[in-house]
Amino acid sequence: MAGILDSVNQRTQLVGENRLELLLFKLNGRQRFGINVFKVREVMPCPRLTLLPKQDSFIKGVAHIRGQTISVIDLSLSTGGRAIEQTAESYIIIAEYNRSVQGFLVAGVERIVTLSWADVMPPPEGAGKSSYLTAVTEIDGQMVSILDVEKILNEISPVSTEVSEDIIDVSIGENLGDKLVMIADDSTVARNQVRRALEPLGINMVLAKNGRDALEQLLAIEATCENCITEKVALMISDIEMPEMDGYTLTAEVKGNDRMSKMPIILHTSLSGVFNNAMVEKVGAEDFIPKFHPDELATAVKKWLKIED
């Protein structure tokens, strides 16, 4: 398992082609789960864990790895399952989300698979708001669940969505009038975080659950009048990882459409890696903001709406 991610940097050509690589793993039971390889730093057998006083019940302990102290989250327990008891026989997936590094305790790690985002579907409608799924796909005839890690992390350590007083300005929305800002993200938690961060600016927003949904909404708006889309939608903020159509592909589709190409796009994602800036330039997005800092996001929105402080 030590070398499972050695060639991650050679895989960046997949990004922007609506493709991804999933690291498959199991919790308690036979159900398979997946996590995007680009969010994974390392996979290793679970080291000895240190317990902390009054730690969250979902935190199994902390591990000291390569000079860094990392909290290890029991991924089964945090999603409503049974706790993983045999830590000595388990693994931790060290991943980076929202500018911080976490360890996820899993029962077993299988392999990396390559697939298209077009083959990754939103969770079933009956899953409900309490579901921890952000997407599902099928591999080897079995369903693989992709967890909404942002929701899990937010329940353990809620992210602040408050914007600093010196950035708040409701006149921004007044100047925009009826123009909209579109938010595309497959995580309900992430969509709501962005929405709450921008509400103090007085902006009207429309939400999309993935890239395909966002594109379909934009095309429907554009169809209501001739060459009017940028007069109706002033800006789009899009996640990168989304089922059916990722943010890079969505951006390329918008920028490749003469009627929509002038719409500013901010890519807003928990993905980490040096490839991001290159991919932002390649697909033509105006900006890239790592999740999640409300002041940075609000400042970028004001910038691309060409509204000065």
Rank of each mutant, 00 (worst) to 15 (best):
G126L: 13
E222P: 09
G80N: 06
V254L: 02
G173V: 04
V149L: 13
D309P: 15
P264C: 02
K151M: 07
V106I: 05
P45L: 12
L49Y: 06
D287I: 00
G16N: 08
V113Q: 07
F292Y: 11
I92W: 00
A83G: 14
F25G: 05
R30I: 12
F25M: 06
F58C: 14
T50D: 13
M143Q: 12
D140L: 15
E216W: 02
D169I: 00
M236I: 11
E253K: 13
L49K: 09
K303A: 11
T79K: 03
M205R: 04
N257V: 01
K306G: 14
A184D: 02
K26I: 03
P47Y: 04
T249N: 14
G108V: 02
M242I: 03
I265Q: 04
G108S: 15
Y132S: 11
I112R: 05
L5W: 02
N9T: 10
H268C: 09
K232F: 01
G81P: 08
T134C: 15
G61Y: 06
S57M: 14
S130Q: 13
L23Y: 00
S261M: 13
E253Q: 15
L201I: 02
G284A: 01
G103K: 03
V106Q: 01
P243D: 06
E241K: 04
R212A: 08
N227W: 00
L267V: 09
G103L: 01
K303V: 04
T114P: 06
G3W: 03
